[in-house]
């Protein structure tokens, strides 16, 4: 069925690679060859140049406000020598004792159960003013919910379990739009609900960012998030 002439073969292959129509295994094979095959590299680059103007057919999309900070954090994590920020003062690290959190009673509840409870009746003290759903960036699935019954006290509620790798811990952070840097709210144990006092911080505000990052077992040494973001979300006034 295939009647391509010998010389045209690699050029067509390179063209299909650039178009994106090769199967995953064919793509892998081309990428493997590209590491050492200069002629194929040139063929691919020629196609990239030919098609490049048509990237303009895709309408630009404004990135969300936290994409660049996230890139910057990953950049800082890669190149500690270039780390420009100063560590957060120790007193702002409100909770950093993992054993403390482990001591908090309660097992992880199934997502459906938590949602059912939350939808059925507002939690005891008062109707929450703010709510945050923390999503896993990769899976876009909800992992945790933050509820604020006042602007000074929040509850972090797990919707499922999370496998923390050996020697690592989940660290909880928040940052309002006009803050310079995120502030640590301490380490949290997966699957366990936690209440956190925000007394030392300005009152919770709309759109305030919350995230859980994977850090060393003792928490981020710099006082700023350094590890990958596992869950992220913003406060919504309700």
């Amino acid at each position: 069925m295939s009647v391509s002439d010998q010389h045209g073969d690699d050029h067509t292959l390179a063209g299909e690679y650039v178009l994106g129509t090769l199967s995953p295994s064919e793509r892998q094979a081309v990428e493997a060859r590209l590491t050492h095959d200069a002629a194929l590299q040139d063929a691919v680059m020629s196609w990239e140049e030919r098609f490049a103007p048509y990237t303009a057919l895709a309408t630009p999309v404004a990135p969300s406000a936290f994409l660049w900070p996230r890139i910057q954090r990953s950049l800082n994590a890669q190149t500690p020598a270039h780390h420009p920020q100063k560590a957060m003062p120790e007193r702002r690290r409100l909770f950093n004792s993992l054993p403390l959190w482990r001591g908090v009673a309660g097992l992880g509840l199934a997502a459906a159960l938590v949602m059912a409870i939350m939808l059925a009746r507002p939690p005891a003290p008062a109707t929450p003013e703010y709510m945050v759903v923390l999503l896993a960036p990769q899976a876009q699935s909800a992992g945790w919910v933050v509820q604020a019954s006042s602007r000074q006290r929040i509850q972090l509620i797990p919707l499922g379990t999370f496998e923390v790798p050996e020697g690592k811990a989940l660290e909880f952070w928040t940052k309002a739009d006009d803050w310079q840097a995120p502030v640590s709210l301490g380490l949290v144990a997966p699957g366990e609900p936690v209440s956190i006092d925000l007394e030392a911080l300005p009152p919770l505000e709309d759109n305030q960012l919350f995230e859980l990052t994977l850090e060393e077992a003792s928490g981020s040494a710099t006082g700023l998030p350094t590890g990958p973001i596992e869950f992220i979300g913003r406060a919504v006034e309700i």
Binding site: A58, V61, A62, P63, S74, L135, P137
Partner: peptide, 23 residues
């Protein structure tokens, strides 16, 4: 950033995934 996100989003058709890829 906006142009890159546009190109990637058009391909993956998922906003969160597109931002992960631009990252």
């Amino acid at each position: 950033g906006g142009a890159l996100l546009g190109v990637v989003f058009r391909i993956v058709k998922d906003r969160g995934m597109a931002e992960d890829i631009v990252h």
